[in-house]
Amino acid sequence: MSRLIKSRYSIPDHAKQKVISIKHLDSVDPNFEQSREVTQAEYNKMLEIAHQEAETIRMQAIEEAERIRVQLSSEKQNWDIEKVNLIEEAKANGFQIGFEEGKHVGYNEASQYIQQARDTVNASKMDYGKYLQSAESTILELAIEVAEKIINDKIKEDEQNFLSVVQNALKEVRKQREIQLHVPPIYYELVLAEKEELLQLFPIKPSLFVFPDESLEENGCIIETANGRLDASIDTQLFMIKEKLLEVLESEEG
C-alpha cells in the first residue's frame, strides 16, 4: 500500500530539472559611462571647493587666534598695571587704616597704662599714709633714741656741750632766788669752774649751789628750787618731747 502511495505522488527526475541559460553582454551602456564621468568631475569640483573653504576657515582661525592673542596680551599688560595700582592702593589704604587703628589702639592702651599708673600711685600714697599713721609713734621713738645718742656722743666729744644743757636748764628758773644744781660727778668740777659765768644768766644773782649726784646718768641734770624740782636731763627732755609729739599725733588721728 505504501509503495502504491509513494509511486502515485512521486515526481519524475526529469521533471525536477530547470535549465538556466547565461546571457552575454558584449558592450556597456554609453549613457551609464557618461553618467559616471560627470559624477567624478562634480566630486573633484566639490573636493576643490572644500579644500578652498577649509583653507579659508584655517586662515580665518589663524587670524582670529592672533587677534585674540594680541587682545589677551594687551589685556594682560593692562591687568598687570591695574594689579600694581590696586596693590599700591591697597597697601596705602591698609597702611592708613592700620596706622589709624594702631594709633587708636595705642592711645587706648597708653591711657589704660597711665590710669593704672595713677591708680597705683594713689594706692601707694594711701598705703604709705596709712603706714605712716600706724608707724609714726615707732618712728618718733626711733627719732628720740637717735637724737639721744647723738647728743650723748656730742657731750662726750666736748664737755662744753654739757654746759649748754645746764645753761638752758637754768634759764627756766631765772626768777628763783635760791637754786640747787645737781650734776653727774664727772662734770662737777667743770660746772663748778663755770659757776660765775652761769650766774650771768640771771638778772639778779641768786644763791647757786652745785652738788655732784652719783644717781644721775652722764647727761643728767637736776635743778631744785623753792617751787619744786626740774629734771633737765637729756633723757628726760627727750622723753617729754616724745610725749608731746605723741599727743599731737593722737589728736590729729582723732
Rank of each mutant, 00 (worst) to 15 (best):
Ala193Glu: 06
Ile151Thr: 11
Glu194Gln: 15
Ile150Cys: 10
Asp127Ser: 13
Glu109Asn: 04
His182Ser: 15
Arg118Lys: 15
Val70Phe: 01
Tyr107Ile: 11
Asn219Lys: 11
Ser2Asp: 08
Ile62Gln: 06
Ala110Arg: 09
Gln112Ala: 12
Lys83Val: 01
Lys103Glu: 02
Ile114Ala: 13
Lys23Phe: 09
His182Asp: 05
Ile87Val: 13
Leu170Ala: 01
Lys242Glu: 10
Gly129His: 14
Val183Ile: 13
Val183Phe: 04
Phe162Tyr: 14
Tyr9Asp: 06
Gln160Ala: 04
Tyr113Ala: 09
Glu217Lys: 10
Asn161Arg: 12
Leu192Phe: 03
His24Asn: 09
Glu82Met: 07
Gly228Thr: 11
Ala54Asp: 00
Gly98Phe: 00
Ser111Leu: 12
His51Phe: 02
Phe162Lys: 02
Pro185Tyr: 01
Ala110Trp: 12
Ala61Leu: 01
Asp158Ala: 13
Lys205Thr: 14
Phe95Glu: 07
Ala90Trp: 01
Ala110Tyr: 14
Glu214Met: 02
Tyr107Trp: 09
Tyr188Thr: 07
Glu88Cys: 14
Met240Val: 03
Glu252Gly: 00
Ile114Gln: 12
Phe162His: 04
His24Asp: 08
Arg8Ala: 15
Glu145Leu: 08
Glu37Pro: 00
Gly129Val: 11
Phe202Lys: 13
Glu250Phe: 03
Lys130Ala: 15
Glu63Ser: 09
